[in-house]
Amino acid sequence: MPSIDLIIELCAAQCQAHYAGSVDHVYASSTDGRRVLLPAQALRRVVTRDGVHGVYRLSYDDNGRFQSLQRLGDSP
């Protein structure tokens, strides 16, 4: 399964917009400098009361559709 490592830094207020449904997608930067668009619902499994902060591995299928998001560690 293909994957890409992302640096995600979102405060709690930004995450609230995703939960409210007013935002469908989120942009994040990959560790190699690419800009990646992912579904906001992908964050629901990793959000804390402080937001989403750290490095995450985004896995997707051969058609480019989201499969999973796993926390790898703190942001560099």
Rank of each mutant, 00 (worst) to 15 (best):
L72R: 01
Q41V: 08
I8D: 07
V47W: 10
Q16M: 13
R57I: 01
E9T: 08
Y60A: 00
Q67Y: 07
A12F: 05
Y27G: 12
Q41E: 05
L69T: 05
V36Q: 05
L69D: 13
Y60L: 00
V46P: 15
Q14K: 10
G54R: 08
H18V: 14
V55M: 06
R49L: 07
D74S: 06
D74K: 15
L58G: 05
R44G: 14
D5K: 07
G51Q: 07
R57F: 01
Y56S: 13
R44S: 08
F66W: 02
S22Q: 15
V26Y: 02
A20Q: 12
V46T: 08
V26R: 08
R71W: 15
I8H: 02
P2E: 02
Y56E: 06
G73A: 08
V47I: 09
D32A: 15
R71A: 07
F66L: 03
L6R: 06
T31H: 00
Y60F: 06
L6S: 05
F66Y: 11
A40E: 07
L43Q: 03
Y27F: 11
F66C: 01
L10R: 08
M1N: 05
D61H: 08
N63C: 14
G54Q: 14
S22H: 09
Q41S: 15
A40T: 03
V55C: 14
S29L: 10
V36G: 04
C15M: 15
L38G: 05
V52W: 09
L43C: 03
G64T: 00
D61G: 11
V26D: 04
S75N: 11
Q67N: 14
I4C: 11
D24G: 12
G33H: 09
S75A: 15
L10H: 04
Q16D: 14
